[in-house]
């Protein structure tokens, strides 16, 4: 199982590199689909069927929205010549990556080994008493709608706000004619 997980992760990394470096925006977006659908398979391997169902549909809808936006505007990537600004950007990116990597290496030492049961300190109550306390067989549904209902209410609010924002940004009625 670990081997298949590592292979899928390498596939995701290759897809990410192709998505960022391709000259055509449409092919970049389709390479983004590689990452999303590989992530779906990883969720199935990790015993998370809820996440796999949501991820596969969300990925499809995301691709539809991005492709529609790109077809409406332009497919060409802006030509990137190598100049001094570009070199400064490269150095800045490298510094950001190195700083984050150092922090991540420091943090990785405190994580428990992959697949060990040590990481279950918080979820012990949810797993042991979730069925008795809520009556829902699906423990994920029990967590998102009963133990952590505030989280889901906040999520619904964020989704509502983003829809309001999209309609406000793309509205055509009441816009000043320039």
């Amino acid at each position: 199982m670990l081997t298949s997980l590592i292979l899928l992760l390498v596939l995701m990394i290759l897809g990410a590199i192709v998505a960022l470096e391709s000259k055509d925006l449409l092919s970049g977006i389709i390479s983004l689909g590689i990452i999303g659908f590989a992530l779906t398979v990883i969720f199935i391997v990790l015993q998370a069927p809820d996440l796999a169902i949501v991820q596969i549909i969300v990925e499809t809808l995301t691709l539809v929205i991005l492709i529609a936006a790109v077809l409406k505007t332009t497919r060409k990537d802006t030509s990137e010549k190598t100049d001094t600004v570009k070199i400064i950007l490269w150095i800045t990116g490298l510094v950001c990556v190195i700083v984050f990597m150092l922090a991540a290496v420091k943090a990785l030492q405190y994580l428990p080994e992959f697949g060990s049961a040590e990481s279950l300190r918080m979820a012990k109550v949810y797993i042991d008493q979730g069925l008795a306390l809520t009556g829902a067989s699906n423990l994920v549904a029990a967590v998102i709608l009963d133990f952590r209902g505030y989280d889901t209410l906040g999520e619904a609010t964020v989704l509502f706000t983003s829809v309001v924002g999209i309609i406000a940004v793309l509205r055509t009625v009441g816009r000043k004619q320039s």
Binding site: I65, K72, L145, D146, F160, S162, V163, I166
Partner: peptide, 25 residues
């Protein structure tokens, strides 16, 4: 109330995503 909450969230997510699609695409 968990099934009822599920229904409410289903209605909300369906409406939100379809509104996003109509407006954007």
């Amino acid at each position: 109330i968990i099934p009822l909450c599920n229904m409410a969230i289903g209605i909300e997510v369906a409406g939100a995503l379809f509104a996003i699609f109509i407006t954007l695409a």
